[in-house]
Design a protein around this nucleic acid. Structure first.
Lengths: 190, 190
DNA sequence: CGAATTCTAAGATGGACATTCTAAAACAGT
DNA sequence: ACTGTTTTAGAATGTCCATCTTAGAATTCG
């Protein structure tokens, strides 16, 4: 065949993900990506096609690593709360925010964005996960709580990116989940 | 003295504000700004120093035009709600989002950002306005509602920028304000 | 070994960009 | 009307960037 790949794909995608989270798509230069991945530009272009290809690969990595195991896999209200509280702990406290939300703001609604479909998918996962869990746990009593939680999630990621202290928002989140838990149908035996 | 300025400053700042809202600071080229303001680059540099100066001027314009008259001036809970519901109506439905939130995401927590102080001030106005109104109207019964409303506000601006329909989030917002109004101390006569 | 493939390194290319320069035109105060 | 100053438009400058190319070294399989 030929020479086999020597680099560790997960490590490369970790570096690319960090760089794109920190600087955005346009703001991350290929030089930055060389440094963060340890690969030269030639290798990056050979492996991922172009900068957009690397960006898309970093998105996939981010989904598999962060979004799907947490919010995407949540079944119970407590698991959703755990996903939210995870935003207050490392590694999410690095101040770089979220690839999806950062992408939303960078590209707006342009369908021509380098990862418009992936950004949309990220937003969908959040919305649908919340809708699913709340419908299952609270039924109609949930009201529009799923939508509200989605807004709170995005707000948290804005604050997390702002470099300001995020801790003061923690009680507000817990209070909301306390309120939602109080709506759970009680399974008391008569 | 010399030749007088012929351009309408408000119109120029309107154009610059739109362009920066749409493309961000780095993404807005001076050519874009020439088109949007009707001025040539020479005039822009003469009047505002550099691109950063124009960006800062656009921020001031945005504060005076959008943030201060709405959230900043709100005294009652109903006025706060009106500010929120304003996000569902023109001209905020143009899909360009908010200069402050877009700036937060573009620059992250870098203190060296072209308008870091103005971005921080925008976030402060939101936080403090909510804190002030809720403390006044609800007192301790508000719990951490001010923080939660701040997150919801930022979330709404993310959705507004995403190009997705924002209308489904409207009932969730109204529901939250209904809930807060129910906490108001009743002034019933005995 | 030899053919195919991947990697590094370096440089070349072409475009986009912010900013400065140049010179003419328009005005204010006298 | 004259003088000095500012605004304006457009061209020029130099930088940075993504991408492609080239050449060669490394590595695998037949």
């Amino acid at each position: 065949m030929g020479r086999t790949r020597t680099f560790d794909e997960a490590a490369v995608l970790d570096g690319a993900m960090m760089t794109f989270r920190e600087h955005g798509f346009a703001g991350a230069s290929v030089r930055d990506l060389e440094r963060a991945t340890g690969l030269s530009a030639g290798s990056l272009y050979n492996a991922f096609g172009d900068k957009e290809g690397l960006y898309r690969a970093a998105f996939g990595h981010y989904f598999r690593l962060v979004i799907e195991p947490r919010l995407g896999a949540a079944v119970t209200l407590d698991e959703v709360e755990a996903a939210y509280l995870g935003l207050f702990e490392p590694p999410m406290t690095d101040g770089f925010g979220c690839l999806v939300i950062n992408g939303v703001i960078e590209f707006g609604g342009q369908g021509s964005a380098p990862a418009a479909d992936l950004i949309a998918r990220g937003l969908d996962i959040v919305d649908q996960s919340l809708e699913r869990v709340l419908a299952h746990e609270l039924g109609p009593a949930a009201g529009h709580a799923a939508r509200r939680l989605a807004l709170i999630y995005q707000g948290l990621l804005v604050v997390s990116r702002s470099g300001r202290p995020i801790a003061p928002y923690r009680p507000a989140v817990i209070e909301e989940f306390d309120r939602l838990r109080a709506l759970r149908p009680t399974t008391t035996k008569p």
